[in-house]
């Protein structure tokens, strides 16, 4: 039978050379095959959408049929009826879940006055499992464009990386190339959130080195021309010291990227910065406690408690040595948030 002959060696050598040529070309030129990619994406996107539509009910049917039914052969009719009813119940549960997801998403959109296009995830990543992307079943036809922010009921999911007519690829916020401008809750301090640490950890870098990031601080998007402001990103879980200054922190995103299903693409933002009102309320603010996060035993860098009166919206301003210049846009946002809340 076939083994390592001269011909097969020749073929593999030719293919390897071809692969390296492609890699070099694409690496050097960047977007060398966008046209081909677009065509292939729209073709496969349709198939993926169909497969997902088909496999969801099939999975439910299989799960409803695996319930043991010892008298199936004696009461075929009853068994079938039973299975049909189970299927209906499973469908009902699925519809309830979807409706819940959708109303949660609407709630977040209403809080921030975002205009969203709801969509569902039809493919996760790529074949190699190394791309932190998902494909959704909404595209240019629904008003999507590249760089729009994608949210779900919990917060920021990522940004649109590419669109075809009816599908779009979302770059998740944990992608190593993802960088999103972020703002610390209740303050006007800016930084950037980057991915690359796996699905459940982000890196936040504060631009202002004189401010100490604390565990439990929460982040929202800062907003720019493409990105809407005020979308919840995550919560600081660990402060990493860089040269004695607590500028870098690990952030746990609010969104769990492993279980994404219903998402919304923000295609229009509010006229004014929504401030912090999109963030979920703190669980138990503990009014006389020194630090805002409830039940946090240690606060390593806390000079005195008077500076942190329980994380109220106006509490960010009296911080000593905290520069106020250069953040005019956010400065307008906080009074708006206080007025709306």
């Amino acid at each position: 039978m076939g083994r390592d002959t001269r011909r097969s060696r020749l073929v593999i050598a030719a293919l390897l050379v071809l692969a390296f040529t492609l890699i070099t070309l694409d690496y050097r030129t960047g977007d060398s095959a966008t046209g081909v990619r677009g065509v292939l994406h729209s073709a496969v996107g349709g198939v993926e959408n169909a497969v997902t539509t088909v496999t969801r009910p099939v999975g439910r049917t299989v799960s409803s049929l695996t319930h043991p039914n010892r008298y199936h052969d004696r009461a075929d009719r009853l068994g079938e009826e039973n299975a049909a009813l189970r299927r209906q119940i499973a469908d009902g549960a699925e519809i309830d879940r979807l409706a819940g997801d959708l109303s949660d998403l609407r709630l977040l959109a209403d809080k921030g006055q975002y205009t969203i296009v709801p969509a569902r995830v039809i493919a996760v990543g790529d074949v190699t499992g190394m791309d932190w992307t998902v494909t959704i079943n909404a595209g240019r036809r629904d008003g999507l464009a590249v760089d729009k922010v994608v949210v779900n009921a919990s917060g920021l999911v990522g940004t649109v990386a590419s669109v075809t007519d009816s599908t779009a690829v979302i770059k998740l916020l944990c992608d190593p190339t993802s960088r999103i401008g972020a703002r610390l809750e209740t303050t006007q301090l800016l930084g950037a959130v980057a991915g690359g640490q796996g699905p459940s950890s982000l890196t936040f870098t504060l631009y202002d080195a004189s401010y100490q990031v604390k565990k439990g601080d929460r982040l929202v998007t800062f907003g720019s021309l493409d990105y809407v402001a005020g979308v919840p990103i995550g919560e600081v879980t660990k402060v990493v010291d860089v040269g004695g200054l607590s500028r870098t922190a690990e952030v746990r995103p609010f969104v769990s990227v492993g279980t994404l299903d219903m998402v919304g693409v923000v295609i229009g933002g509010p006229p004014a910065d929504p401030g912090d009102r999109v963030l979920p309320p703190r669980p138990a603010p503990a009014p006389d406690a020194a630090q805002p996060p409830a039940g946090q035993p240690s606060a390593p860098a806390q000079p005195d408690g008077a500076q942190q009166p329980a994380g109220q919206p106006q509490a960010g301003q009296p911080q000593a040595g905290q520069p106020q210049g250069g953040q005019a846009q956010g400065g307008a946002g906080v009074p708006a948030a206080a007025g709306a809340g």
Binding site: L15, L16, D26, A33, V36, V169
Partner: peptide, 16 residues
């Protein structure tokens, strides 16, 4: 072609 990474890298790995 269906992914967002450099074209040719999956082809190289799968070919090998």
């Amino acid at each position: 072609l269906l992914s967002t990474h450099v074209i040719g890298q999956t082809a190289l790995v799968l070919c090998l």
